[in-house]
Amino acid sequence: MITVTDNRTANRFEARAGETLAGFADYFRTSELVAFVHTEVDPAFEGRGVGSQLARTAVESVQTEGLRVLAVCPFIAGWLIRHPQYAHLEYRAASKVTD
């Protein structure tokens, strides 16, 4: 069984199988958003849905906090594309055109 927790001291969500670190998603947190910058799953756990469970728990945690998600990490970005029900959480900078 995989358990995902937010290790705020390390600025990452961690997926563990018992005491074994199966994967993690590094982030930077601001008052507006959580920017996911790198996700990694141990090769011994690949193909078991660890990355998906990690992404889902992380994104849902951000949602619970009322923040947005900035997916710098290609894995989290791809996961969000495959799960459009979370599209409303994606952070997009507002651009202003000035003359």
Rank of each mutant, 00 (worst) to 15 (best):
L54F: 05
H88A: 13
A87I: 01
V72Q: 13
L21G: 13
T30W: 05
E40C: 00
Y86D: 00
R92K: 11
T5M: 09
T39S: 03
A77L: 00
G51L: 09
L89G: 00
Y86H: 14
T9P: 02
A93I: 10
Y27L: 05
V69R: 04
R56M: 14
T5I: 15
A35F: 01
T20A: 15
F75Q: 00
A87Q: 12
Y27T: 10
E32N: 14
F24T: 04
V4G: 10
G51Y: 10
I76R: 10
C73K: 03
V59S: 15
R56T: 14
A10E: 13
R92C: 05
V97N: 02
L21W: 06
E40G: 06
R82Q: 10
R48G: 10
A71Y: 04
H88D: 15
Y27R: 04
L89P: 09
L89E: 08
K96M: 11
W79S: 01
P84Q: 05
A87W: 03
R68L: 10
T64P: 07
G66Q: 09
A25S: 14
S61Y: 12
G49Y: 10
A10K: 12
V41G: 07
Q53P: 06
L33E: 14
A55T: 03
Y27S: 06
R8K: 12
S95F: 11
V50W: 00
A58E: 08
T57D: 09
R82Y: 04
S31M: 04
P74Y: 00
Q53G: 15
R16F: 05
Y91P: 08
A87R: 06
E46L: 14
S31N: 13
Q85W: 08
H38F: 05
H83G: 04
L70G: 12
L80G: 09
M1E: 14
V50T: 00
V97E: 08
V4Q: 05
L54Q: 11
N11G: 01
F45Q: 08
A15H: 10
T9N: 06
V97T: 04
V62Q: 03
V62G: 07
R8Y: 00
V37D: 11
F28S: 08
R48I: 09
Y91L: 06
T5E: 11
E60L: 02
V4A: 05
Q63M: 01
A58T: 06
R56G: 08
T20Q: 15
H83D: 12
H88P: 08
V62E: 02
Y86N: 04
L21I: 11
E40V: 12
L80I: 11
Q85Y: 07
N11W: 01
V69W: 08
R82T: 06
R12M: 11
R48H: 12
G51A: 15
D42G: 08
V4L: 07
V34L: 15
A77V: 01
A93H: 13
E14G: 07
L80R: 03
S95L: 15
E32K: 14
L89Y: 08
A44E: 15
C73F: 07
V41Q: 06
A35R: 14
Y27M: 03
T5S: 08
Q85A: 15
V69K: 02
R92L: 13
G18T: 07
D26T: 07
T5N: 07
Q63C: 00
I81S: 05
I2W: 04
R29H: 01
V97R: 03
T9K: 10
E32I: 13
A94W: 09
T39Q: 02
G49F: 07
Q53N: 09
